[in-house]
Amino acid sequence: MSATFVPPQELPYGSAHPLQTLDLYRQNLDPNACWVIFIHGGAWCDPKMTKSAGHPLINSLLPKYPRLNAASINHRLSPHPRYPSNGNVAKHPNHIDDVHLALSFLRERYSMKREKSVLVGHSAGAYMAFQVDAGCGVAAAVVVGIEGIYHLGKLVEEYADYEGFVERAFGGGWKGVDGEVLADIEDGEKGGGRVVLIHSSQDELLSFGQSRYWAGVLRGRGRVVREVYDVAGNHNEVLEGAELVEVVEEELKGLEMEFAKEN
C-alpha cells in the first residue's frame, strides 16, 4: 500500500487532563505498518519539554519510510519550582499511567503492533519507556533510550540536587520505584526486545554512568543491548542530531527485513 504523507494530528488519548494528548503521524493505513513512538523527557516536570521534542526525529524518518507511522506523546507533569503549576500536580504513577493509556489508544484505534514498533524515550522518557516495556519486548520490538535516566537511586547518589525533582515526581517512596522496574525485567522472558542506549559525552546533565549501569543490568537478564556513545550534542541537542536518526533507521530496517521474511 502506498504512503500518503499527512501533517500530524493532535489527538486526546484521555480525558483526565489537557496534557493527555499525542501528535499522530499516520501516513500508511496498512495494519502492518511500522511505528515509532516518542516519549519526551524533562524530569517529569518541565513544561518546556513536550511532545514537540520528538518532531525532528519523526520528520526526518517519515519521508524515507513509506510504511512508517509515528506518534509523540504528552503526559501529565509534576510541579516545577520555577513555573506556575497550571494543574501540573501529577505524581507517580500518573506519568506512566498516561504512557500506558496512550499506547493502548494507538493499539486499539490504529492497530499499532508491538512487534512492529520502536519505542524511543529521552531522559526521563527513557525511564518511562522501560517502565512500560522493561526491555522484554512487551511494548515494542525495540526500545531506544536517549541520554536516559534508568535508576533513580543511582541518579540521586551521583547528583544529590536531583532528589528534589525525583521526590516531586515519585513522592517519599521514590526509592522503591527502581525495584518495580527491575522486578518486571526479572519476570520477563529471555530474548525479549532489542535495546539501544544512546549517550553523548557532551551531555551536561547526566554522565555515562546511567547508561552503562542499565546496559549491564539488561545484558545480565539476557537482553540484546547496543550502546552508542559516539554522538554529538548536549542533553537535548542529541534529539536533533543525525546520529539518532541513523540509529532508529537501522532498527527500522531490521524490522522491515523481519517483515519481509514473514511474507
Rank of each mutant, 00 (worst) to 15 (best):
I37G: 05
I37F: 13
F38G: 04
F38Y: 15
F38A: 02
F38Q: 05
I39T: 04
H40N: 14
H40S: 09
G41V: 10
G42M: 06
A43G: 15
A43S: 14
C45M: 15
C45I: 08
C45W: 00
D46C: 06
K48V: 08
K48N: 14
M49H: 05
M49K: 13
K51C: 04
S52L: 12
S52F: 10
S52A: 12
A53Y: 09
A53G: 11
A53L: 14
A53T: 12
G54W: 02
G54E: 03
H55K: 12
H55C: 06
P56R: 05
I58Y: 03
N59E: 15
N59M: 10
S60V: 06
S60N: 11
S60C: 12
L61V: 11
L61D: 11
L61P: 07
L61F: 08
P63C: 08
P63Q: 11
P63I: 09
P63E: 10
K64V: 07
K64M: 11
Y65P: 03
Y65K: 13
Y65V: 09
P66R: 11
P66Y: 09
P66E: 12
R67N: 13
R67S: 14
R67E: 09
R67A: 10
R67G: 14
R67I: 14
L68P: 07
A70D: 07
A71C: 06
A71Y: 03
S72N: 05
S72F: 01
S72I: 01
S72V: 04
N74Y: 05
N74G: 02
N74E: 05
H75D: 02
R76K: 08
S78P: 03
P79F: 00
H80G: 01
R82F: 14
